[in-house]
Design a protein around this nucleic acid. Structure first.
Length: 118
DNA sequence: TTCATGACTGGCT
DNA sequence: AAGCCAGCCATGA
C-alpha cells in the first residue's frame, strides 16, 4: 500500500535517540489527521520487518507509549537508544520529540535545559 | 457497500 | 490535571 510506504518513509526519517508522535508522522507523510492510520501501518509491520522501520521511536502526542503489541519492547528500545522513559512509559517530548528536522540540530532548538532538571 | 475496530488527536468541562 | 466525545483513514467480515 502506497499510503503505508509514505508512513514508513517518515518513520525511517526519525533519527537515532529521538521520538515522534503518530500525528506528526501522519502530517509529514501527507496524511494530517490520520494519526490512527500511522499506528495501523506500524501494526502491519509485524516482527518480520525487523529493524527496517524504527517503529519504537513513535509515541502518542503525550509522549506515552500506546503500543498495543509490545509496549515493554518499545520502552526497552527507547532506553537502549538513550531515551529516558517514565515508569508509565512516558517520554519527554520536550527533549526527544523529532520536529521533522533532518539534522540533530533540532535537539538544541528547544528551550529545555537538560542540566537543570535531568 | 455497510458496520465495527484500532499502536491517535484536539477541544470542552 | 483528568475524563469524555467526535473526526480522521484503512482494514476485515
Amino acid at each position: 500500500m502506497e499510503t503505508y510506504e509514505s508512513i514508513y518513509a517518515v518513520v525511517r526519517r526519525i533519527p537515532y535517540g529521538r521520538v515522534s508522535s503518530y500525528g506528526r508522522v501522519a502530517l509529514l507523510a501527507g496524511r494530517p489527521g490520520a494519526a490512527r492510520l500511522v499506528g495501523y501501518a506500524l501494526h502491519a509491520l509485524r516482527p518480520g520487518a525487523g529493524d527496517e522501520v524504527p517503529w519504537w521511536r513513535v509515541v502518542n502526542h503525550s509522549g506515552v507509549i500506546t503500543n498495543g503489541y509490545e509496549p515493554a519492547l518499545q520502552q526497552a528500545r527507547l532506553v537502549a537508544e538513550g531515551v529516558a522513559v517514565d515508569d508509565v512509559g512516558r517520554v519527554d517530548l520536550r527533549r526527544y520529540l523529532w520536529d521533522g528536522e533532518e539534522g540533530p540540530a533540532a535537539y538544541f532548538t528547544g528551550s529545555a535545559c537538560p542540566s537543570s532538571s535531568g
